[in-house]
């Protein structure tokens, strides 16, 4: 995912000299091509995420579109106040790019588990979360990000879905809009699994089980506080929704959907169930697949 992201950014930088890529001393074997082609648009800020994020705000105030790139929690939680005050409050054009969403770096331990990031980033009023789960979703997210002039959070997982061919490759991913990923056999079914981020494979596995064979798969890759009012209408189309995210339940994507459905004026009869990571994942070592299996994620 990260290589595809950097390819798209490199292409964009060719025609847009306002793009500035800042890395927190990370990105080995990923960022070199960008750096070589556009050295004036590349800054290694060192291992100093607070300064990197504050500088990004300063650069954005001078009309640069800045991308701050790091792993997991380093460019989100470490510098959360810089994101809150310097970027989001001023509504600056900075995209925080975190690689290793969810348990992508599972074996590296808790410091590298990005499993509370939605909770943080969705608490900022101007922030749009981009959590792509497929190649086409990354393409669309990047199109939207290049077009946008406001703060963004791009959460990249490590891997792309294995069964890409079967999946719907929509080019129509407007912020706040759900996209059909995979229909179930019963086209008339009014049940769906709604994902965000790099959990499409998990949703496909779920659908193969009898319990969920009657559920379509949809994703919502672009969301945030600004798009809450768009959700009720989409939620109300369904009898049942199961949200799926590689994040803890509290403050996560499922919580967001529940909040969207809690407005008295628009709340419907839809039954919403949440599937997320077990909090005990915090104390366990293992790679992403092992951890998901051990804690029965998406079961």
């Amino acid at each position: 995912m990260r290589n595809y992201f950097i390819d798209l950014l490199t292409k964009e930088a060719k025609s847009n000299n306002k793009i500035m890529l800042m890395v927190g001393d990370l990105g080995f074997s990923v960022v070199e091509n960008f750096k070589e082609k556009y050295p004036k648009q590349f800054i290694n800020a060192g291992v100093a995420e607070q300064n990197m994020t504050g500088m990004a705000a300063g650069l954005a105030s001078e009309k640069f579109h800045v991308f701050t790139y790091s792993i997991a929690n380093f460019n989100t939680f470490r510098c959360s106040e810089q994101i809150r005050n310097d970027i989001d409050y001023h509504n600056y054009n900075v995209t925080v790019v975190s690689v290793g969403g969810g348990l992508s770096y599972g074996a590296l331990g808790y410091s590298h588990h990005a499993i509370q990031d939605y909770a943080l980033m969705r608490s900022f009023p101007n922030m749009t979360i981009y959590a792509p789960g497929t190649m086409s979703e990354i393409t669309n997210c990047m199109k939207q990000i290049f077009r946008s002039k406001s703060p963004a959070y791009l959460r990249l997982g490590k891997t792309l879905p294995k069964n890409l061919k079967k999946l719907n490759k929509s080019n129509d991913q407007a912020p706040g809009k759900w996209t059909k990923i995979l229909e179930c056999k019963n086209r008339e079914s009014r049940k769906c699994i709604l994902t965000t981020g790099a959990v499409i494979d998990d949703a496909v596995k779920m659908q193969k089980k009898e319990e969920f064979s009657n559920y379509h798969i949809y994703s919502l890759p672009i969301w945030g506080m600004k798009y809450k009012t768009l959700q009720a209408q989409q939620i109300n189309k369904w009898d049942e929704i199961v949200t799926l995210e590689d994040h803890l339940e509290d403050g996560g994507f499922g919580s967001y959907i529940l909040e969207c459905n809690s407005n008295i004026q628009t709340a419907g009869e839809t039954k919403i169930k949440l599937k997320s990571l077990n909090k005990n994942v915090c104390n366990t070592v293992g790679d992403q697949d092992n951890l998901k299996e051990h804690f029965k994620f998406a079961h």
Partner: peptide, 30 residues
Amino acid sequence: HKVKGVEFSTGSLGHGLPYAVGKAVAAKSR
């Protein structure tokens, strides 16, 4: 920053210098 002439909203300490550095980088780069 909603007041004319104020470049940047501050209040929590330690934010002004990184922001200023970003602006200085912008000036150099252009």
